[in-house]
Amino acid sequence: MNGRERILARIREALRVPAPRPGSHGHGHHDVPAPAPQAGRIPLRPVQQARAWLPPGGDTPEEQLGRFAAASADLKTDFHLLADEAAARAKLSGIASAEGWKQIATHRAALTDAVVPSLGIPSRTTDGGYDPEDLERCDAGITTCDVLVAQTGTLVVNSRTTGGRALSVLPPHHVVLARRDQLVGDLTDAFQRIRELHGEGWPSMISLVTGPSRTGDIERILVLGAHGPKKLTVLMW
C-alpha cells in the first residue's frame, strides 16, 4: 500500500462511526446518534443560504460603487472613478509624474494597451516571461483584473490574463485598470464571474487582492507595504 491508500484507508475506518451534526453538542443530545453520512452529497448547501447573512454588497450598480469606494477608503486603496479612457490616461500620467516613475511594467490587454503607451515611460511587459531582477526595479506594475467586489473592496487578478503571478505584487505600486461593468456585489457573485471566465481551464493562480500589502505584526500597528505593494490604485471608467 502506498501513502495515499494508507491514509485513505485510515480515514474510511475512522468515518465508520458517524459524528453528531453541528449544533447537537452540549445540549443533552450526546447519546442521540446522528444520521449516518450518506453516500451522495447532502442536498442542502448551507453556503448558498449564507450569502444573506454576510455583509451586503449592494443591489444596484450605484450602491455597489458606493460600497466599493467606502471599502477602498477604509483599506487605503486609492480608488478613482473616471469619465472615460482619456480621463484615465490623464489620471495615470498625473500619478506617474507625481511619483517620478522611470520604469514601469505591464502586460498586453485591451485596457493596458489603450492607456499605458500614452505615458511615454519605458515599460516592459511580462508576457512570455521576464527577468525578476528587472521587474523588481520597476516603479509600478500596471495590470487589468477579472472582477471587483463591492462587499469587500477586493479585486481579482490571475496568472494567465492579468500579467502573471509577480507583476501585481513585486513592484512597490500596483495600478489596476478596470471597467465599471467588472464590479459585482459580493464574493458569491465574484466566484460566479471567476467560474464563467476560467471554469474551462483554470489559470494556475487566482488572487483576491484587498488593499495594499499590510502587516500588524509589530504591536498590532498597521503598516502598509510589508512585502508587496505599498500603494494600490484602482482606475475605473
Binding site: 455583509p55 508576457d127 516571461g129 496568472s159 503571478r165 494556475s204 488572487s207 483576491l208 484587498t210 500588524g216
Partner: peptide, 23 residues
C-alpha cells in the same frame, strides 16, 4: 484579525501552465 477579508487570498491550482509568464 477583525478584518472584513484578509489582504491576499490566493487560489493555486497548479505549477506554471502553458502560456503563463511566471510561476
Amino acid at each position: 484579525a477583525g478584518q472584513a477579508i484578509t489582504g491576499y487570498n490566493t487560489l493555486y491550482s497548479g505549477p506554471r501552465q502553458p502560456g503563463e509568464s511566471d510561476g
